[in-house]
Structure formats: structure tokens, C-alpha cells
């Protein structure tokens, strides 16, 4: 995986305070979103929370004694969702699914994977798409169900796949089409 390289602003104290001037805030927001996506992708983090007691190094830098407040986290995650790179998992908007690939992009990746194995026309379980032997070593490995379902819904809308409800959630299946 290699070491994650933090951007310069991560060691710059004022970036942990929401800036009052609109233009400055937009720049700040853009830099944070870039960092969030890069960090999550690097460390395979799929979920973030606005809870300020969460000590993830992403939102708090011990070395300069600065951390994002709940308001700060909430602001940037909201922006993330607005850009299609995030999805709130609850109505209170506390937990956020991070999509470093948008749902559309994930859909492409899943479909491309299925096509490369010649799975068009056949049925596979949803779980297999993230835990099966065939996905080991690909980006799909370890993908949380929530992200996977978002991608499959996109494929369903495109008419490229169909989701089957199983008796239990584990039994959900998916059929890919040409």
C-alpha cells in the first residue's frame, strides 16, 4: 500500500477551522474533499462519520493539535454527497458512505469485471462480487454491500443487470446481461 502522503494544508492550522469568506471556504472545501477521497481510497475506508469523537487521523492532526469540529466534518461530507462522491446512510446525516468512485464508475468496474469472466447471462450472488475468489486482487475485493448495491442499482437502471431478492440478505443474487 505504501505510505500515505498528506497534502501541505494538513499541517496548516487554519484549514481545520471553517473559513468565513465564501471564496476561501470553497477552496478549503475542495482541498478537503480531494484529501478525503484520496485518503479513503488509499486506506480502503468506505464510511465516515461526523462524530467529532472519532479520532481518525483524516480529521485530526495530533502533531499540530488541530481537529475538524462536527460542523466542519458535516460541511465537507455534505459537499462530498452533493458531488456524487458520498451517500448519507442515515436521515440525521451522521454517517456517510464514501464513493471515491461514483456509483456510476463503480457500476462500470463491476460490469467490466463480470464481462471479463464471461458472466453475462449467468447469475451470481451479490456477496461473491466483494468476497469471492474471483475478485481477490481487484478493486472490488472487500467492497461493502452498501456501495455494491448502489453500483448494481445503476446497472439495473441501464438494463445491464437485474437484482434478485433472496430469502436472506446473503442470498441476494444478480444476473448480468449483455
Amino acid at each position: 500500500m505504501g505510505d500515505f502522503s498528506w497534502p501541505f494544508f494538513y499541517t496548516y492550522p487554519p484549514y481545520f477551522t471553517l473559513q468565513p469568506v465564501k471564496e476561501t471556504r470553497q477552496k478549503q472545501s475542495a482541498l478537503w474533499i480531494e484529501l478525503i477521497l484520496k485518503y479513503c481510497r488509499h486506506h480502503k475506508v468506505y464510511q465516515l462519520t461526523t462524530d467529532p469523537s472519532d479520532d481518525s487521523p483524516l480529521f485530526s492532526n495530533q502533531s499540530i493539535n488541530r481537529r475538524l469540529t462536527q460542523e466542519g466534518r458535516s460541511t465537507f461530507l455534505t459537499e462530498l454527497v452533493a458531488r456524487g462522491n458520498g451517500l448519507w446512510l442515515d436521515n440525521n446525516q451522521r454517517t456517510c458512505l464514501v464513493l471515491w468512485h461514483t456509483a456510476e464508475q463503480w457500476a462500470d468496474i463491476v460490469y467490466e469485471w463480470a464481462r471479463s469472466l464471461g458472466l453475462e447471462g449467468s447469475v451470481t450472488t451479490v456477496d461473491e462480487l466483494s468476497t469471492g475468489d474471483e475478485v481477490q486482487g481487484t478493486e472490488l475485493a472487500g467492497m461493502p454491500r452498501a456501495v455494491l448495491m448502489e453500483a448494481l442499482k445503476v446497472l439495473e437502471r441501464r438494463g445491464k443487470a437485474r437484482i434478485f431478492k433472496g430469502a436472506a440478505a446473503d442470498d441476494d443474487g444478480v444476473k448480468f446481461f449483455k
Binding site: P13, P14, Y15, F16, T17, Q19, P20, V21, E23, T24, K27, N65, R66, R67
Partner: peptide, 12 residues
């Protein structure tokens, strides 16, 4: 200075 983007606030 804030308006011109030459200064940033740090409240921590």
C-alpha cells in the same frame, strides 16, 4: 485581509 484571501482564521 480575510476578504482578499490573504488571511485565514484559526479558532483552535
Amino acid at each position: 485581509l480575510l476578504r482578499d484571501g490573504l488571511a485565514l482564521i484559526d479558532d483552535q
